[in-house]
Nucleic acid binder design. Sequence first.
RNA 1: GGUCCUGUAGCCGAGUGGCUAGGCACAGCUCUGCAAAAGCUGCAACAGCGGUUCGAAUCCGCUCGGGACCUCCA
Length: 490
Amino acid sequence: MNNHLLIYNTLTRTKERFEPINIGIVGLYVCGPTVYNDVHLGNCRTFISFDLIYRYLMHLGFKVRYVRNITDAGHLEGDRDEGDDKFEKKAKLEQLEPMEIVQKYTLGFHDVMREFNTLPPSIEPTATGHICEQIEMVKQIIANGYAYEVNGTVYFDVEKYNLEFPYGQLTNRQLEDLIENTRELSGQDEKRGRLDFALWIKVKPEQIMRWPSPWGWGFPGWHIECSAMSSKYLGNTFDIHGGGMDLQATHHTNEIAQSQACNHKAPVKYWMHTNMLTVNGVRMSKTAGNGFLPGELFTGNHPLLEKGYSPMVVRFFMMQTHYRSTLDFSNDALQASEKGYARLMAAIKTLDKIKPSSTSGIQLSGHEKACHDAMNDDFNTPVLIAELFEAASIINSANDGKTLLTADDIIGLKKLMHDFVFDVLGLKPQTSNTLNDKALQGVMEIILEIRKEIKAKKDFAASDKLRDDLGKNNISIKDTKDGAIWTVQE
RNA sequence: GGUCCUGUAGCCGAGUGGCUAGGCACAGCUCUGCAAAAGCUGCAACAGCGGUUCGAAUCCGCUCGGGACCUCCA
């Protein structure tokens, strides 16, 4: 088991050596999407980042239980527990039942995740499936003295909690500063303190999504679901909790408070936060209206895009930036990634053609170590990719006969590329071996044979026309020393 | 206002106090009927000003610029 992994912990704002609570086993919880709308690309970035983390932990040999929830209830619009329920509002707009909204966008979310080649989590619990657990937790928090009920709504008492625990620790803030920067309570506000938040919310008469509780009909507050579900599946204290940076200040801060108040334990050892995706320097968000939908990106059907980019190119593009840095979207950057990605994949294919030598001109173990070092340094994918390009250079050089590789070198390089490109980075070759492709392969062999004959007669006008015409149909022909090869452009 | 992050060559992006990632683009050469691919070579950067140091893009301070969170958002 590799024990050199460093993880940046938001709690301490430093990189820490990763030591799981139970040897060899990792509990990982990631805040999933609220399924009242299409996932936009910013959401996807977080889930793709944690997919990488999940994959690498498994690559290191850990047994990982990866829990990522679906929020399908209790998420209000507007601020401070007073807005409309997101699902009910969307249901009215689309003239559907709230649970039809949930179903529709859950399915859409899964489709997109599949396109990005993310592994499904071990458990994907929903808020509505864990109402009992949430109610029990709220009861316990009240019993422990950190929450109070007013007219069927239960609030968490932040100021009382802060007397014993540092409420603002995750964002390094003092309670006084937080209070100062929060707006005044309005006249009819039921809360005792400005920072108090709802654990359970009394239902409005017109609302459909409602459950019985000791405090009457209502629904759970947004933050309690993650506390309830993470402790149920991973225990009262578990290893890693992740999510987007935007959840840090409110959602995760409240999660810590709830779990601590309920279980008398800090819930999480390592907090990990992914940075935001930006478009022209501005954060991509639902409210800013600058969100790309994944489908728009794949097809290029968006005013800001010059063309479409395949899911694997987008994934590769994201991996070229570290997860804690902002990632800015632009055509130039995407095109650069597209070409680089193609080069990397081509090198992997080339590996099959290299003839082994009896002597070796490389030190493979050094490259393997460099790959692991990069990933062990808080999942530094840009450095890993730089190293993989070094490997690609070796492969290309060997293919040109300028670097010697033994049979063992070739096997080792294949394993290196397979492990890191496919297993860890989660990329996959874009060409699939369907029946159609097999038919196409036969056709292309015939065409290339004909073209070879034309070229032998030095009728270059005809052979070039054939190449150009195939190019217009996204099939590119390249003449190499060993004859012509063809590839389908994505 | 509070808490932070950030400013790296044409573009995207890593980075350790000393040994100048990587990708894309660009230029030259090799290969080639041409093109492409591939290889080799070249190219250029650390926002500004001070300080610490034998030495700083890397540490500290200030100035200027960009961004996030503090109200729903991954």
